[in-house]
Design a protein around this nucleic acid. Sequence first.
DNA 1: TTGACTTTCGTACATTTGTACGAATATGCT
DNA 2: AGCATATTCGTACAAATGTACGAAAGTCAA
Lengths: 188, 188
Amino acid sequence: MNMDLIKERLKYFYRIHRRLPTYGEMVPLLHYASRGSTYYVVKRLLQEGILEKDENGKLIPKDLLNIPMLGTIRAGYPVPAEIQQDRQLRLHTLFENALTASFALLVSGDSMIEAGICEGDYVIINSSIEAKNGDIVAACVDGEWTVKMLRKDNDVIVLLPANKQYQPIHPRESLTIGGVVVNVIRKY
Amino acid sequence: MNMDLIKERLKYFYRIHRRLPTYGEMVPLLHYASRGSTYYVVKRLLQEGILEKDENGKLIPKDLLNIPMLGTIRAGYPVPAEIQQDRQLRLHTLFENALTASFALLVSGDSMIEAGICEGDYVIINSSIEAKNGDIVAACVDGEWTVKMLRKDNDVIVLLPANKQYQPIHPRESLTIGGVVVNVIRKY
DNA sequence: TTGACTTTCGTACATTTGTACGAATATGCT
DNA sequence: AGCATATTCGTACAAATGTACGAAAGTCAA
């Protein structure tokens, strides 16, 4: 039994079903003839840390939601991508701040283009994190919402766009910080 | 029984365990006294489309991995975010192309800055999608990897940076398209 | 209050589950 | 070849699982 192939098949099942298979369901999936075999093979995956069990003894995914991380790529002049195989981009880690007290907004407009936030992007806002100087925030200025960079100079708050064609915003009457942008997600 | 509260509790369990609870595990989680009750309540969640069953009759999450989608926000001059409650940003949908035949790369450099791809971003490359004109691709030019926009003019291929300080790349000897960028993810 | 729902509870039952173990088979090494 | 180890199979069993159903309790409007 090829461990990588098994991992692939489990990953496939997980993608389709959004859950791990039971030992019984693994029998056809992994092309075994009995549950004893799948039990044995899962034991090995547990030892290798590819799967985990929670405190109720149920299997939970560990490295299945992940995407192989091949290394760094220059977006400047081309240099070799330092291929560092077998690292994994763990989506769970990437979105750890997105799954609690968060909401998403679809971006329209181009005022944050120089910060890499474009029309059509989704920004994830965490409303439980306190906004620090320099954070990109979703703010309600004088009754209207926008995404900008927060700048505090001793109690004077300015919201800076990341596009030279726009002016900094100096809140007049009211300012509510809705939360801090913790993720930007783009889909092509 | 408050459906929203139940949803919250299931979401909480899912975040901790990365799987749905069994009917038995739902009894303490949802503060019921018997499995009959949780079975009843899950039946309602299924009717409302909050949970699903796969073809094996097992529960699978539907709206649990998701992030509330509050609407559109202007990154230009502030306008009211058109709050459209109860829509959900489904991470699964956003990454549907990322979970098959894909790998991730960490971006360094600034040659794609005008396309909103910045240093520190993760790009997800799908190697099974054929690159079309205008796609952002990971390509190996004369032995070195880079992220650029693909331009094909009758068999002449040019790789365009998205930064005026860089020149278009005209592959001399070899060009391999590693795949198409399907997602960009940024974490602050 | 009455009556019609809706929700919860407890119990029951056939299946499936995780787990264990011994026998059989395959694999690798010397 | 031989032997040791790793893997697969089949069977067994207690526990948990999904499901069904009738009774009890709760809710709500007339």
